[in-house]
Design a protein around this nucleic acid. Structure first.
Lengths: 199, 199
DNA sequence: TAAACTGTTTACTGATCGGTACAGTATTTT
DNA sequence: AAAATACTGTACCGATCAGTAAACAGTTTA
């Protein structure tokens, strides 16, 4: 019999995609097997706890990617504005302008939320915290930065939902552009400390 | 045998809840039967096309509720500001401050999107259009009102995702409050026509 | 070379899936 | 009261579900 000498990590990208496309319940072992090219035996060899362990592995992989590509620059980058621009650019690419679902967001809305609550929370807390750090480094008020970063993360999730619902990537792109304007530190950020924004 | 004299419409609220909690694939006929108190025989009597027809009925019901409670006032209400305030209030109540999922949004993100694409699109188009109409009646530019209304609908969907992910209703409430500030016509709305907002 | 380890295939299990068929019971209509 | 209609419970269908078991092959270690 042919030996594929597959590694566990090789399967994770395929797993992520199949869970994104079909959700936790919708992704059957048959679909997973087809997507990864692995039989049940191999799958249970790599992930003895079945689907749940597969999702956990995928979530850890996603978390790591965001940590390296987005959170870390936001927290520690020299130029806060540049880090924010990178975040928006990488995010747009990652979610394919709304054409690709956010697995973490999708899990948060599904009934499987409780099973992965910690990982889901960690993903979003990491994002909001990192963005807040960048905004504070811009010179913004801590409390204001908190609100604004929550607002931004939330907008990205909403943009995915709406752009998919309308089947229009432009909706996603417009939302990202809006965020760019709102998150950029253009010198007026502290002029109006009331928190009330004019349009 | 006991006769329940059930009506089709009686089941729809329970159906909506079970689809919200378990999603389309996750809501098995066993679960649906338990939630509605109806056996398979009754369910297929009322909904000959099975789960798909059940979801369609639920979506139509939701659409109608939003039309009456939210869209119609936004489009035709005398006071645009009041209609917007009503929208935010009713929406908060409806989604239980993020504790309750938006079924339409959840379907939009799931792989079942294509099956219900038209209904999903109708729901969101109706919302954005109605809100845009109210914003225009406030005296805003049509194009600006479009962007702003997309932004608002998207923020509500994102707020549901994030507040569930963080298990914190306050996140939803803060997002609604933010929207209140951004959507209210406070006289400054046209002062800055560049579209760039100060914070 | 022999043993141990790492994958892979295949066949299988019991449970559950969505959906159908139909007899039977209530209600309404005539 | 009789007939038509509306609703319900149950038994059943083939398909698919997640997961297990075990024989077997390729690779690494001793």
């Amino acid at each position: 019999m042919a030996r594929m000498v597959a590694e566990r990590s090789d399967a994770i990208a395929s797993l992520a995609e199949v869970f994104r496309e079909h959700g936790y319940e919708g992704a059957s072992l048959a679909l997973i097997g087809k997507a990864t090219g692995l039989g049940k035996g191999s799958l249970y060899h790599f992930f003895p706890n079945g689907k749940e362990e597969m999702v956990r592995a995928v979530l850890a992989d996603i978390e790591q990617w965001f940590e390296d590509s987005v959170y870390s620059p936001l927290r520690d980058g020299e130029d806060a504005d540049a880090a924010i621009a990178t975040m928006l650019k990488e995010t747009t690419k990652y979610f394919r302008s709304g054409g690709r679902v956010c697995l973490v967001g999708a899990l948060a809305v599904a009934n499987t939320r409780d099973l992965f609550a910690q990982a889901i929370r960690g993903y979003f807390v990491g994002w909001v915290d990192a963005l807040q750090a960048a905004l504070v480094r811009q010179g913004r008020d801590v409390e204001q930065a908190r609100i604004l970063s929550e607002d931004a993360v939330l907008a990205i999730q909403g943009a995915i939902v709406l752009s998919r619902a309308l089947d229009d990537p432009a909706v996603f792109q417009r939302a990202i552009d809006q965020l760019h304007g709102r998150l950029a530190f253009d010198g007026t950020a502290l002029d109006n400390s009331s928190g009330k924004r004019s349009f």
